[in-house]
């Protein structure tokens, strides 16, 4: 094996050298051809036209680091439309650089909000690192000292996250009441991350509940008995099982399987012949209440 690998390795340097040569030959042509002065290229010493200047320029202007960072963000977030994602990303960069003086709270909030929403919460590492970036952005108050994140900024950020989705206002308010900090309190990062995470998950939960309602009812309303049966099944599954984790997961899976749910819904329909209808808002409110009951309050 090792004997086979060696020649393959030895081939790499010549290839790379050829590639470098081609790039070096190609790069100076447009620069020399167009006599227009380029702002980024006007470097002291006039070394811009020397051999291998392209890579040097990219390094000096910070393009390499910037593009690498952008690629990293794309990989973390895996957006459905990478072009618009990148466009927004670079737009943010321009805005951030344009503001020469230290940004005020509104700008910092906007940047933090953008960071938090970059990656989905299921990409744990990406989400946590973005939350860290948001925490730093929020915390760096002006005048060269890190002010830290206080409860006021934190609550405002959470409020803005909740506004981005379709979660009912009551649910958002109730969630904020559980995870908020008081205005004067310094917010540790762990609490910050948890608060941001719960808000993001609440939005997704509300979206799921919305989709469930669409399945349960054809139009704008669904049978109350069906809704209550399904919600009760979910509540039972959430309350059940205090044992080991795998056992709890299996039990919930069995309780929420299609046949059990079909049975529960069928029984609910047979209870009373006359059924009232439940509105979408009411269903969302009841469903999100189940979720919020499981959120541990910050203390």
């Amino acid at each position: 094996m090792a004997a086979q690998k060696l020649p393959a390795r030895a081939e790499v340097p010549p290839k790379m050298a050829a590639y470098e040569k081609r790039r070096a030959a190609a790069a100076p042509v447009p620069a020399g051809g167009s006599g227009l002065p380029e702002p980024g290229r006007a470097a002291p010493g006039g070394g811009g036209l020397a051999e291998g200047s392209a890579a040097e320029f990219l390094l000096r202007a910070g393009v390499t680091a910037m593009v690498r960072e952008a690629l990293l963000k794309v990989l973390e977030a895996r957006p459905a439309e990478p072009v618009s994602f990148l466009a927004e990303y670079f737009e943010r960069l321009v805005l951030a650089e344009a503001a020469a003086e230290p940004p005020g709270p509104p700008q910092r909030l906007a940047r933090a909000l953008w960071y938090v929403c970059l990656a989905h919460h299921s990409h744990r590492t990406a989400f946590d690192s973005n939350a860290g970036a948001a925490y730093e952005v929020l915390g760096c108050g002006g005048r060269r000292r890190a002010a830290g994140v206080d409860g006021r900024l934190y609550s405002e950020l959470l409020r803005r996250i909740c506004q981005r989705g379709a979660a009912p206002a009551e649910a958002a308010a109730e969630l904020l009441r559980r995870v908020r900090c008081r205005d004067h309190e310094a917010v540790p990062f762990d609490v910050f991350r948890y608060g941001v995470l719960t808000c993001c998950v609440l939005l997704e939960f509300a979206a799921k509940a919305d989709a469930l309602f669409a399945v349960l009812g054809a139009g704008g309303s669904a049978d109350t008995r069906l809704c209550q049966a399904v919600l009760r099944a979910l509540e039972d599954a959430l309350g059940a099982g205090h044992g080991s984790r795998p056992g709890r997961y299996l039990e919930a899976g069995s309780r929420l399987g299609p046949d059990r749910l079909a049975l529960a819904m069928d029984q609910a329909l047979q209870e009373r012949k006359l059924g009232s209808s439940m509105s979408r808002e009411e269903f969302l409110r009841k469903a999100t209440a189940l979720f919020i009951a499981k959120v541990k309050p910050v203390e």
Binding site: L197, T198, L212, V215, L226, L256, P258
Partner: peptide, 23 residues
């Protein structure tokens, strides 16, 4: 007139998972 139990189960299970994430 029962809604599709498969779809209902999918959505409800995902809601359960989200709650478990928080826990």
């Amino acid at each position: 007139e029962l809604p599709d139990p498969e779809k209902v189960s999918t959505e409800v299970q995902q809601m359960w998972v989200l709650t478990e994430v928080i826990r």
